[in-house]
């Protein structure tokens, strides 16, 4: 089990993680989903005791990571990028790590077989492909047969066969009662693997719910609205917790309001609404909806002609969603 309480990391001016509280439960795969730069890796480094939190705490099986007598036996992690000296072989790398915990060589052989590295275990890591590097990272994470497994973007660079392998592996680990915490910026990956989802954007938790609930879009009603006076309707509806996206073909997508509330507000203001459709989100849509305003490196399309209400971004270029959040 991993428990984070008001966990925050600030680098100078930049807030990477802004006080997150969450629990990763054993016996299921918990996905950690968010766009690049959302704070996933920073959070994982704090779990592993590599980065010191600016504020708050995070514990693994009830203790801060560094307090465990045999940390590799508690939690194993694959963190972003490679954590191997390129001049050593996979076997030598794992052997050195195992030595710190008195883990026998037989276990090194086991994780090498398990991750399918047998054929290259004696070769220098320098020549490894990204996928082989990921497999070596996963082998290192499993070395201590830990209760908790943290994998940062494990399917990065893996071939389709490898992706399926990771999926089966994490499902199996969770079925054994282990805590599995898996990060990704790919929602499609999460839909296939995770039981529970924690969505992070700009260092804040946006959603923490079973994947089913997020797919159902619970708590965030979403409607498609067509009206002749979009600017007026946006001005009318915009408030805390409501996001409105002006779509290319002229309709609006309103999130955070029940259709009845929209209709009532429009009626009260005398605005004609000729379509009001409740929307069912796919995970992809749900994710975009959740993180759109939390994307740090957003690509801004060129601004098209004017005509937008004050405070509302002009209608955007092709196939782009713009929205207002108050």
């Amino acid at each position: 089990m991993i428990q984070a309480t008001d966990l925050a990391k600030v680098y100078g001016e930049k807030t990477a993680v802004a006080g997150v509280t969450f629990t990763v439960e054993p016996g299921r795969v918990t996905g950690f989903l968010g766009p690049n730069g959302a704070g996933k890796s920073t959070t994982m480094r704090m779990i592993m005791g590599l980065d010191a939190p600016t504020r708050g705490t995070v514990t693994v099986n009830g203790e801060p990571y560094a307090r465990h007598r045999a940390p590799l036996r508690e939690i194993g992690a694959l963190l972003e990028a490679r954590a191997v000296h390129p001049g050593r072989s996979a076997f030598q790398h794992l052997h050195a790590l195992a030595a710190t915990h008195g883990i026998p060589s037989s276990r090194v052989g086991e994780v090498i077989d398990m991750t399918g590295l047998g054929a290259v275990a004696r070769k220098k890591v320098k020549g490894f492909s990204l996928g082989m590097g990921q497999r070596l990272g996963i082998a290192a994470a499993l070395l201590g047969d830990p209760q908790v497994v943290v994998l940062d973007e494990p399917v990065n660079g893996l071939d389709p066969e490898g992706v399926v392998w990771v999926r089966n592996l994490v499902t199996y680990l969770a079925s054994e009662g282990r805590t599995v915490f898996l990060s990704s910026h790919l929602m499609s990956e999460m839909a296939q693997t995770a039981d529970h989802l924690i969505v992070i954007g700009r260092g804040r938790i946006i959603a923490d719910a079973p994947i089913r609930d997020i797919l159902d879009g619970q708590g965030r009603a979403r409607s498609r609205v067509r009206t002749d006076s979009p600017a007026e309707l946006i001005a009318l509806l915009a408030r805390e917790g409501v996001s409105i996206a002006a779509q290319e073909d002229g309709h609006l997508e309103v999130t955070g309001l029940e259709p009845r509330e929209i209709a009532r507000a429009a009626l009260g203001a005398g605005i004609l609404v000729y379509e009001l459709t409740p929307l069912q989100a796919s995970l992809e849509e749900a994710y975009l909806q959740l993180t759109r305003d939390d994307v740090e490196y957003e690509s801004h399309p060129a601004q098209a002609g004017g005509g937008a209400a004050p405070g509302v971004p002009a209608t955007a270029g092709p196939a782009t969603l713009r929205e207002v959040i108050r």
């Binding site: 099986n61 007598r69 045999a70 508690e74 915990h101």
Partner: peptide, 25 residues
């Protein structure tokens, strides 16, 4: 092949990173 038994949580007998083990590593 992953493991022969269910994972055990923080058992006291498991060896941790003592100085000699770190030196060996």
């Amino acid at each position: 092949t992953l493991t022969s038994s269910a994972p055990a949580s923080s058992a006291n007998h498991v060896p941790g990173p003592s100085f000699l083990r770190v030196l060996n590593a």
